[in-house]
């Protein structure tokens, strides 16, 4: 089966002359069309670095990246933006503070402006058209995050890369965003990678989960398998701490 996105043997090291930190160590991953892949791990495990490498914001030291079997390793966001979009943790900061939502959304689209498509997408994410006239500072965190999702959809990207997109939201906004993404996955066959430290959240949303620790993938598999019968001690620890938090 053709993977929509694939990474082979990805390595990335950050550091100075004195100290090197290997953020990614021989990471392999894939994403199938219409799949929601979750990447779990604690802070510093390399999950956000992996997302930045996939998006082209950071160049890997070695390894290869493929989009529909076409290699794109080392390409910048101007190239990768044709098929993927990032959704950031702090949604407000992903909008120019001077721009209205309309300007921001129109800017994201490479193709000709399509007002009807824009209004349709806003309905899909449960936002009113009137909000297009507002700036990010005039919207709530949840509204901004949904507007980010709308922007990614309007850009007609095939893949969404979501970096801790619910961690800055309150519980009800988190639930709204999760529901919207589930709906988009069913209706649009949306493919996305979610990075989160919250394995419980990933288990409700993703079909497959990848667990990272110290820059390495320690476990991956179907959500039911990873959550039901974890094979790695670190995964067990993450699940256990998620259970304790929910009590």
């Amino acid at each position: 089966m053709e993977h929509i996105l694939k990474g082979i043997n990805l390595n990335k090291t950050f550091g100075t002359k004195d100290q090197n930190i290997q953020a990614l160590k021989d990471v392999d991953f894939y994403l199938d069309e219409g799949e929601l892949l979750g990447i779990a791990g604690e802070s510093g495990s390399g999950k956000s670095t992996l997302l930045n490498v996939i998006s082209g914001l950071i160049r890997p030291d070695s390894g290869e990246l493929f989009y529909r079997e076409q290699e794109y390793t080392g390409k910048d966001p101007a190239h990768t933006g044709r098929f993927l979009q990032m959704i950031f943790q702090d949604a407000k900061s992903s909008f120019d503070p001077r721009f209205t939502m309309e300007c921001s959304l129109l800017e994201s689209r490479r193709k000709k402006t399509d007002r009807d498509a824009l209004c349709g997408i806003l309905k899909e994410v449960g936002l009113d058209e009137k909000l297009l006239k507002r700036k990010a500072s005039e919207l709530s965190g949840g509204q901004c995050q949904r507007m980010s999702i709308a922007r990614a959809l309007y850009s007609e990207a095939d893949i969404l890369l979501c970096d801790e997109i619910t961690s800055a939201l309150d519980v009800s906004s988190q639930a709204q965003v999760v529901e919207i993404l589930k709906k988009l996955n069913v209706e649009r066959k949306l493919s996305a990678i979610f990075v989160s430290h919250d394995i419980a959240l990933l288990s409700t949303l993703c079909t497959r989960i990848m667990v990272m620790k110290d820059g390495q993938v320690v476990e991956q598999g179907l959500t039911t398998d990873v959550i039901g019968t974890p094979g790695n001690e670190y995964t067990k620890l993450l699940i256990e701490s998620a259970r304790k938090q929910s009590l």
């Binding site: 914001l57 933006g81 950031f88 900061s93 909008f95 850009s155």
Partner: peptide, 13 residues
């Protein structure tokens, strides 16, 4: 800033 990264994804030079 994230909004500049977003503009890069939109292919802005």
């Amino acid at each position: 800033a994230a909004f500049v990264q977003t503009a890069r994804f939109a292919g802005k030079n």
